[in-house]
Design a protein around this nucleic acid. Sequence first.
DNA 1: TATAGCATGTAATTAGTTACATGATTAA
DNA 2: TTAATCATGTAACTAATTACATGCTATA
Lengths: 182, 182
Amino acid sequence: MELSKTSYVILGMLRTRTHTGYEIKSIVDHSTRFFWAASYGQIYPELKRLEEAGLVKGEAEAQGARQRRSFSLTPEGRRELEDWISSGEPLRFELRHEGLLRFFFADVVDPAEQLELVRDMREMHERTRTEMEAIRPHAEEARAERGQEFPLKTLEFGIAYQEFMADWCSRMEREIHKETGD
Amino acid sequence: MELSKTSYVILGMLRTRTHTGYEIKSIVDHSTRFFWAASYGQIYPELKRLEEAGLVKGEAEAQGARQRRSFSLTPEGRRELEDWISSGEPLRFELRHEGLLRFFFADVVDPAEQLELVRDMREMHERTRTEMEAIRPHAEEARAERGQEFPLKTLEFGIAYQEFMADWCSRMEREIHKETGD
DNA sequence: TATAGCATGTAATTAGTTACATGATTAA
DNA sequence: TTAATCATGTAACTAATTACATGCTATA
């Protein structure tokens, strides 16, 4: 069975304990979504496929009349996850940035609009940074209670990344302002 | 007509002069593809739609028996491009980074593998940086000959960005090494 | 008692890549 | 003469989002 990146997100989320599809979605939304998102439309069908492939095991945990299936990693699933992290396969990355795309073509508009664009970009990155700061307690808890170092390191990277982007925007604001001004 | 980001890439590429679909593809591959890619499978059908919408105009420029259609911006197309750059619509951005995704889950493998992962990530970003440096002459030419400031600024951002990523990887290498060592 | 959150899932749509098919021209 | 590059386009596929549909449970 061919595993997609999203399959690995799911396997990874089950590395410490069992979770429902719903829980996986909300953990993703508080962690990996900044560099790898996943929707219900991917998670539920993928959980089914992973179960068929013997990499996860679902167990009914109904609470009263509410249906609920918790999934756990099988030994094969864990091996698959570890192999993927250790595999030397090329690491792809992709940035899709609408602001940068507009910026690239910004010679066709005048400085006032150029300035507005970079200002909007900076604000967006500052907002995302704030959003990430709000998540920090989660990552600190994961470290304190489950000994996980990497979610926090990853979050700290994310914050530094947003800062880097916002700083670059500030620099561009100054550069453009110089031309507009005197 | 609803325009996608890729539509704007095409309009943008025609801002200074006419181009064929083939040329647009190769310019994209030397510029915006680092934050917005486009394939032939998008470009040719999209050029057709843009022409039907009156935003670009194609002209046959056959050289002997070889077919060739060059497209130019119509006044409406230019306005559409300018409006998009100036519009205050939310600027979306998305990072998909397989290395970071593995890193997030890296608690499940041992330090030797963690180290290998960040090393691979660093090397990838250094390679991309080198690739971008190779493009610099193109962007400098655009500035010198067509007065375009923004493609060069964007490229310089790209280079700084790759450096930032590579530096962070180096820092992680040192951090992990400390734990592996003594 | 009503709203927010928990929970599962599918269908339709959109976006995008890859592979394929074809052929001309230029430079080594 | 052959390989690289120029040039156009479609078909099949893959990935992913969004909207929809359903219903339970806890809490304010």
